[in-house]
Computed example of a mutant assay.
Amino acid sequence: MALDADWAERWVRRTADAIADAKDELTELDRQIGDGDHGENLDRGFKAVVARLDDAGPGPADERTVGDVLKLVATTLMSTVGGAAGPLYGTAYLRAAKVSGRAQIDPPAVVAVLEAALEGVSSRGKATVGEKTMVDAWHAAVDAAEAAANDGGSELDVLRAAAETADKAATGTIPMIATKGRASYLGERSAGHEDPGARSTALVLGAALAAALSGPTSADPRSAA
């Protein structure tokens, strides 16, 4: 299994599918404690990303890097997604692109990509752990990924640890009281609701794992077949 540019593209396409499937759920979560547009905004953004990938074509296999794909995601999200999601995810992908400018990434590099994404979200949103934001899911995922890599885990092990932990961390935001962002205006009333950004983070990282597990197929628009 190679985590290369083709994997990164599968990751993006699977993310677009996952966001589309969960659009209504994400929008409802955001309606409860936010602006009510998280699902629609992300769905529009990732549809635009997929359209740009289709227009760009695969390019020479020996020249594309993981970072090339992630940079395209970043610039597209920043230019097409409104609300907080565009700047936050755009910055996450842009920071990740800067540390993944290589043909393939190994377990430590996967950790570096996730760390860079976390740094991007944290700096752009000026948020930290425990404030009931997507940072809670990203931070937990990074910790789990780093532990898996330090234990000698493969790329797949690292991605699985990140995805599974992000999912649990997203659920873990339900009892929390928001102290950052629009949800913080609700005070104690924000408890009992899952943070939509944490849930979308879990979807993004779940798509990364799914893309690694699947590998290229004949149904993939960028398959060698």
Rank of each mutant, 00 (worst) to 15 (best):
N150A: 15
A219G: 04
R222Y: 02
V50I: 13
Q104I: 00
G34C: 01
A51G: 12
I177F: 11
R14I: 03
L88R: 06
L53T: 06
A74W: 15
A127E: 10
V12H: 00
A85D: 08
E63D: 06
V66N: 12
A211C: 02
R14T: 02
K168E: 15
T217N: 07
S218T: 06
R95W: 07
V204A: 03
D4P: 13
I105Q: 00
L70V: 09
A162E: 13
L186T: 05
D24Q: 06
A22S: 14
G83K: 01
T217F: 13
P87W: 10
A96Q: 08
A219C: 04
D55L: 04
R52C: 05
E28N: 03
D136S: 04
G36L: 01
V81Q: 03
G172K: 05
I105G: 00
D55T: 07
E25W: 12
K126F: 14
L88C: 10
D43F: 09
L3I: 11
R199W: 07
L77S: 02
A149C: 08
P107C: 02
V69H: 03
D167H: 12
Y185N: 06
R10C: 01
G39M: 07
A162Y: 02
P87F: 07
P58F: 15
A141F: 00
R13W: 06
E131I: 14
G172I: 04
A74L: 08
D37A: 03
V69Q: 02
L213P: 10
G215N: 11
E194M: 06
K126V: 15
A109D: 11
L159H: 12
G39T: 14
R102M: 12
R44V: 07
G125Y: 04
E40W: 15
T128G: 11
A137T: 05
W7H: 08
R44T: 10
R160P: 10
A225H: 15
R31T: 00
G57S: 02
A109C: 07
A163R: 05
R13G: 00
K180H: 13
E40C: 15
G120I: 08
A178T: 05
S154C: 09
M78D: 03
G57E: 03
V12R: 01
A96W: 14
D151V: 10
M1T: 10
P221V: 04
L156E: 12
A169F: 13
A22D: 15
K71C: 12
G215W: 11
G83D: 01
P196K: 00
G215F: 09
V121I: 15
R64V: 10
W11C: 00
W7E: 02
A145C: 10
L114A: 11
R13H: 05
E131K: 03
G36A: 00
L70E: 13
G34V: 03
D21Y: 10
E119M: 12
